[in-house]
Amino acid sequence: MLKVIVVDDEPLARKGMLVRLAAFEQLEVVAECSNGDEAVAQILELKPDVVFLDVEMPGMDGFAVLKSLQQQQGKLPYIVFVTAYDHYAFNAFEVNALDYVLKPVEPERLKAAVAKVLKFHAAADSQKHKGQLAAAVAKLTGDEAGNILQRLDKSEPVVNDRFPDAISIKDSGEITRVPVAEIDWVDAAGDYMCIHTKDGQTHILRRTMKELELELDPRLFVRVHRSAIVNVHTIAKLQMLSNGEHQLMLTNGQAVKVSRSYKDRVKQVFSQ
């Protein structure tokens, strides 16, 4: 049997994956983790054969987990990426050993992913494993496999450079193109996003925060709260309040609350 660890910050997603994996007699789930730090610790301790790794997690995301494992141990487990967003041309993602599954996880798709892992494990070709791992990360980011692993080794961000220069916003029969470079910060207002620009205007966009986040270059924008994204160039300072919470002060005088789950991401901005 192959030892498995499931990593996902969403409790329901973890529970659903555990239920589905129980159908495979070749797999034994030895741990479930709710964040990246916990995942790294459990993987190093339990040395699983397979990790079902959520890509999008606050704090240490799936790529950061992979980077940390590369730095701390030689042999990596087989990685099956899990994500809710078909954002990186997954239809072209064809690998023999590593795979991805989209949320909500469909039984047949998971079955195919497990079959690939079992097939590769039977081959026991560690060199091929390393190459397939590089290919998997490359497919997720749109970059060359060699470049991706070099960036991970150097603790550099793993990003896709192909981000739009402007966001198109429809309103009352008109479409306004808002240059991304002019966006100071974004906050959620129910089912809408309020995009605040450098000229003091506010544009209303009907889209989810997660969808908008995927269109913004993570080197230029940081998620600071479940309902707020900030342009890093507008950050003036990070303040700790008397109640122990944190907030950002922007160059335009705007104060933006920082939630606990995103605090580490914000601190990384100040360390760059």
Results as ranks from 00 to 15, higher is better:
138 A>L: 02
140 L>Q: 06
140 L>C: 03
140 L>R: 01
142 G>C: 12
143 D>S: 10
144 E>T: 15
146 G>C: 01
149 L>Q: 07
151 R>A: 13
153 D>M: 14
159 V>A: 13
159 V>P: 13
161 D>P: 15
166 A>H: 12
167 I>D: 03
168 S>F: 09
169 I>T: 02
170 K>F: 01
170 K>D: 09
173 G>L: 11
173 G>A: 10
174 E>N: 14
179 P>H: 03
181 A>W: 08
182 E>K: 10
183 I>A: 02
183 I>G: 07
183 I>K: 00
184 D>R: 11
184 D>V: 09
185 W>I: 06
187 D>M: 06
189 A>G: 02
192 Y>S: 00
193 M>F: 04
194 C>F: 01
195 I>P: 06
196 H>P: 05
200 G>K: 14
201 Q>R: 05
202 T>L: 02
203 H>E: 07
205 L>F: 01
206 R>E: 03
206 R>C: 01
206 R>S: 08
213 E>T: 01
216 L>I: 12
217 D>N: 14
218 P>M: 08
219 R>F: 09
221 F>Y: 10
223 R>V: 03
223 R>Y: 01
224 V>M: 11
225 H>E: 06
225 H>M: 04
226 R>G: 09
226 R>T: 03
227 S>D: 05
233 H>T: 08
233 H>A: 11
238 L>E: 14
240 M>P: 11
241 L>H: 01
248 L>Q: 13
249 M>N: 13
250 L>P: 09
252 N>V: 00
253 G>K: 09
254 Q>G: 08
256 V>K: 11
257 K>Q: 15
260 R>K: 12
260 R>Q: 08
